[in-house]
Design a binder for these strands. Structure first.
Lengths: 173, 173
DNA sequence: AAGGGAAACGTTACGTGATTGCGTATCTTC
DNA sequence: GAAGATACGCAATCACGTAACGTTTCCCTT
């Protein structure tokens, strides 16, 4: 079956302002993903890879339906379930992350297996998201959980506000 | 117009295991809510109060549609938008909190206006949620944000796992 | 008390995010 | 190359949240 995946280079929509060319970042992340999947004994199929690529090359988190449109534009877009399955896989492997407060997904940047607590800083102006962590923060959170006797499985630390770049640009547009 | 609000005492659904009788907690919270609303110059209407009561007397977070059913059971349940409006109000006043990772809502316990960072510990076994915070945690997060030059507006700090009580009960049921 | 403006609520419909169920294809292993 | 497991296709549906617009209630002023 031919089944061409009409995948586009994912230029940022022209209404956005791309910060940097993300090609390098993307290829790095992909190489890392390949390695991780090999070591985990799981398959990074074409769909999963294209979803990950899309997440990597976007400067902002993407919704599942947005991904569906990006990966197979036009009237016959990818079925939601297909995207969700790919996302579930990527999240399980620690390659992507779900932003619960946004119903959107981003590629994980760090994730070197270091068990650091990561806060996601979501800019409400430009939509960009950056990961932030520190030893003090990780320590304090770990301590907090220990004292509560809580056995954590997943942490969702999301902070909404304005990134430093957008603060410089005066009031909210 | 008669328009009786068929509000029931909100006994927990019998399939759940209520930890304690929450009546005292609820009345305390309601008194506090009244006071806060008076001081803010806003109105704690009947709908808003009943929604808050429901949240207080529940041992686990409630979804908006769950609330709609609780507050007006039967075929003619409360319209979603009504519940959402009440929830928006309660959240604005700091009386309730939205758990983004769960699409559910809980009554705020602390909220003495202290600007502490609060983590919500969500037990995946029993569904209970507890608030946790510490000076170290607040400090570390504040520091993290400052160093990133990030101006925060709202924080979502949710940790999923198993509470101390459920860990005692062996493997996940 | 009458009136006028704002806030709260009712009703309907809709948009988006996410999942269920089931069948088919593809890969892996022996 | 047959069997089992994994991944994907397809359709329908559920769950969460919001838009738009009209009506009621409250509160303040006159």
């Amino acid at each position: 079956m031919a089944h061409t995946v009409s995948y586009k280079p994912l230029v940022q929509s022209t209404t956005e302002r791309p910060h940097i060319t993300e090609t390098t970042k993307t290829s790095h992340a992909l190489a890392r993903a390949e390695a991780i999947c090999r070591s985990h004994g799981v398959r990074l199929t074409r769909i999963r890879r294209t979803v990950l690529e899309a997440l990597c090359s976007s400067s902002k988190p993407l919704g599942a339906y947005e991904l569906a449109d990006l990966l197979a534009p036009g009237p016959r877009r990818m079925a939601p379930i297909t995207v969700y399955r790919a996302l579930d896989f990527l999240i399980e492997q620690g390659l992507a992350h779900r932003l619960a407060s946004r119903n959107a997904y981003i590629a994980t940047v760090d994730s070197d297996g270091t068990h650091e607590a990561t806060a996601y800083l979501i800019c409400e102006d430009c939509g960009a998201v950056e990961e932030a962590s520190s030893a003090a923060f990780t320590g304090a959170l770990t301590d907090l959980l220990a004292r509560a006797g809580f056995e954590h499985r997943s942490k969702v630390l999301e902070v909404a506000g304005r990134c430093s770049r957008c603060q410089g640009r005066g009031g909210r547009h």
